Amino acid sequence: MSIVAGLTLALALIGLWLVRYLAQRQRLAAALLAKEADVRLLAEECSDVAMRVSTSASYTL
């Protein structure tokens, strides 16, 4: 009987960890989408050209 209780406890702990892990991933995905939307809005509303020049003289818009 104690083996069954131990396995049940182990499954419950794994389930709890999995739920917390997935919830954290969902929060991170939502934050990333919000940040991407902010950057997209800034780029669409900007009338200037932003450019980055690397040390190898390659241009990134």
Rank of each mutant, 00 (worst) to 15 (best):
M1V: 09
S2I: 02
S2D: 09
S2L: 11
S2N: 12
I3Y: 07
I3E: 14
I3S: 13
V4M: 08
V4G: 01
V4N: 09
V4D: 11
A5H: 13
A5N: 14
A5I: 09
A5Y: 10
A5G: 08
G6I: 07
G6R: 09
L7R: 15
T8Y: 08
L9G: 01
L9S: 13
L9R: 09
L9W: 04
L9I: 10
L9N: 08
L9M: 07
L9A: 12
A10R: 14
A10K: 12
A12M: 07
A12H: 11
L13E: 05
L13I: 07
L13N: 11
I14V: 14
I14L: 15
I14M: 12
I14F: 13
G15S: 13
G15Q: 06
G15K: 05
G15F: 04
G15M: 10
G15Y: 07
L16I: 14
L16N: 12
L16Q: 13
W17H: 06
W17M: 09
W17S: 02
W17N: 03
W17V: 07
L18I: 04
L18M: 12
V19Q: 02
V19M: 07
V19N: 00
V19R: 06
R20A: 06
Y21P: 02
L22D: 11
L22Y: 09
L22R: 15
A23K: 00
A23T: 05
A23C: 11
Q24P: 04
R25F: 01
R25K: 12
R25W: 06
R25G: 04
R25D: 13
Q26L: 06
Q26N: 09
R27A: 06
R27C: 00
L28R: 12
L28Q: 12
L28S: 13
A29W: 03
A29S: 11
A30L: 09
A30C: 04
A30H: 12
A31G: 04
A31K: 09
L32C: 03
L32W: 00
L33A: 15
K35L: 07
K35E: 10
K35I: 05
E36A: 15
E36S: 15
E36H: 15
E36K: 15
A37Y: 02
A37T: 03
A37G: 03
A37K: 12
A37C: 07
D38I: 00
V39W: 06
V39Y: 10
R40E: 08
R40L: 10
L41D: 01
L41V: 02
L42D: 02
L42E: 08
L42W: 09
A43Q: 12
A43P: 01
A43Y: 04
E44I: 01
E44S: 05
E44A: 08
E45H: 04
C46D: 14
S47A: 06
S47P: 02
S47W: 00
V49G: 01
V49T: 08
V49L: 02
V49W: 02
A50C: 13
A50T: 08
M51W: 01
M51Q: 02
R52G: 03
R52V: 15
R52S: 12
V53T: 03
V53P: 00
V53N: 02
V53H: 03
S54Q: 02
S54F: 02
S54V: 01
S54P: 00
T55P: 00
T55G: 01
S56W: 01
A57S: 06
A57E: 03
A57N: 07
S58K: 15
Y59I: 13
Y59G: 01
Y59T: 06
T60K: 05
T60Q: 11
L61P: 03
L61T: 10
L61W: 12
L61Q: 10
